[in-house]
Design a protein around this nucleic acid. Structure first.
Lengths: 136, 136
DNA sequence: CTTCACATGCAACAGAGTTGCACAATTATT
DNA sequence: AATAATTGTGCAACTCTGTTGCATGTGAAG
C-alpha cells in the first residue's frame, strides 16, 4: 500500500485511489495489460476516460511502457527506474498464442545488430510470439 | 501493369482495379502503409470498407504482412514468396522518428536468441526506432 | 453471352481513444 | 486546522478505426 504511494510520489504524481488501483493491478497481474483489461478489472469504480488518462500519465512519467502486439496496444511496468526524460527498454516481449498473455522477459536483452550506414537506432522493440511455459 | 495481374493470379486472386491499385501503391511507395495511408491515396476511387477487405485478403494470401508500430498497424509487401500456408518473416522494421516512415530492412535478420526453458517461439517481430539515412 | 462465384458499395454498427467543461479531491500555505 | 491553488475525475459528446449484412456489380469459365 505504502509502496504504491512511494512509487507515485517518486514520479511526481499525486496519490489518488485510481492511480493506486491501476498501479497495483499492474503489480499483481504480472503480464502486460490493455486499457480494456484495466477497464474490466476496475471499470465499476472508475470512468473509462480516467483510466485512459491514468495510462497516459504513467507513460509520460516512465512508470509503464508500451508493448506492441499484432492485435493492439498493451502496457507493462517499467522494471528499472525509467523517468520522464529517459525511457530505456531493450528487453523482449513474449506473447503466448495459446493463453494470449504478453509478458516481458526482463532477463533477456536484444543482441546488438549491425545496421546499414546512416541508420541511427534509438529504441528496440522485439516481440516474439509462440507458446509460453504455462501452456506448453 | 501485367506484373500486377501476375502477382494476383499467382495468389489465386481475381484481378480487380482496386486490388491492382492497392498493390501498385505498395510497390511505388516502398515503405509500410496503414489503412489510412491507402485511404488517402485511393479513397476517392474506392470505399473504405473495400480497402479494409483488400488488405485482409492480401494478408491471408501472403502478399503483405503486418508491421507493428507504437502508433498502430501498418502493412508491407512480403518480399519472398509467402503463401496462404506459410508466412515467414524474420526481418527487421525500422521506423524513422523524423519522417515517420517505416521500412523493412530485408537484408538484415534477427539474430537467434536463447529463450528460457519452456518458451516455444514461432514468430519474431523486431521494430527499431530511430533516424533513417534520409533524415540523418 | 450466360452463369456462378466472388468483389464492391452502402448503411449501420461496435469499439477505441480524445476533448471540453464542471465539479471533486489533493497538496501547499498560512 | 482551514483555506487557496492546483490537479484529477466524471460525464457527455465526439472522432477515428474497424466490422458486418445485404443488395448490386463485376470477373472468369464454359
Amino acid at each position: 500500500m505504502d509502496q504504491l504511494r512511494e512509487t507515485l510520489k517518486g514520479h511526481q504524481l499525486r496519490t489518488t485511489t485510481c492511480r493506486e488501483d491501476v498501479l497495483s493491478t499492474f503489480i499483481n497481474k504480472k503480464n502486460a495489460l490493455s486499457h480494456g483489461d484495466l477497464e474490466g478489472a476496475l471499470g465499476e469504480n472508475y470512468d473509462r476516460v480516467t483510466i485512459y488518462r491514468t495510462l497516459k500519465t504513467f507513460l509520460e512519467k516512465g512508470i509503464i511502457h508500451k508493448v506492441l502486439d499484432d492485435e493492439g496496444l498493451r502496457y507493462a511496468l517499467c522494471s528499472h527506474s525509467c523517468s520522464e526524460e529517459k525511457h530505456q527498454h531493450d528487453h523482449i516481449h513474449f506473447k503466448c498464442s495459446a493463453c494470449g498473455e504478453t509478458n516481458c522477459l526482463e532477463t533477456l536483452h536484444i543482441p546488438s545488430i549491425q545496421l546499414p550506414n546512416g541508420y541511427q537506432p534509438e529504441n528496440f522493440n522485439l516481440l516474439i510470439q509462440g507458446v509460453c511455459p504455462k501452456c506448453n
